[in-house]
């Protein structure tokens, strides 16, 4: 099941250079849009358990609204303090305006 591509939101629902939170099979996923590229990570910060979709996207970095920790949305890498743990990122595919995600 989890190895399959799962249809989620449409690309138009994600504002350019911003982030939204979407439930995919009961999990909270953050979808980011940078130009025409879409990225996806877990939505809950690995540090203070805030929602990254309430945060601020700067280029390819999402800044958590709670303590300003930043992740690279392309690979989930924790970029600065207070983060000590990377966030999980997911493969994305876009077909006819629909975003597909592989939760793995």
């Amino acid at each position: 099941m989890s190895q399959q591509w799962i249809a989620s939101c449409s690309i138009d629902e994600i504002p350019v250079d911003d982030v939204i939170g979407v439930q995919v099979q009961g999990r909270e996923i953050a979808f980011y849009r940078v130009g025409d590229d879409v990225f996806a990570t877990d939505n809950i910060c690995t540090h203070g358990h805030a929602r990254l979709c309430d945060g601020f996207l700067e280029g390819h970095e999402i800044e958590c609204p709670l303590h300003q920790g930043r992740f690279d949305i392309r690979n989930g890498k924790a970029m600065c303090e207070p983060l000590t743990e990377d966030i999980r990122s997911y493969p994305i595919r876009i077909e006819e305006g629909r975003v597909y995600i592989k939760l793995g």
């Binding site: 601020f56 958590c64 609204p65 709670l66 300003q68 920790g69 207070p82």
Partner: peptide, 11 residues
């Protein structure tokens, strides 16, 4: 100080 909640406000 590392960070404060809602430093940049709430969307």
């Amino acid at each position: 100080l590392q960070g404060v909640p809602f430093r940049r406000g709430v969307k």
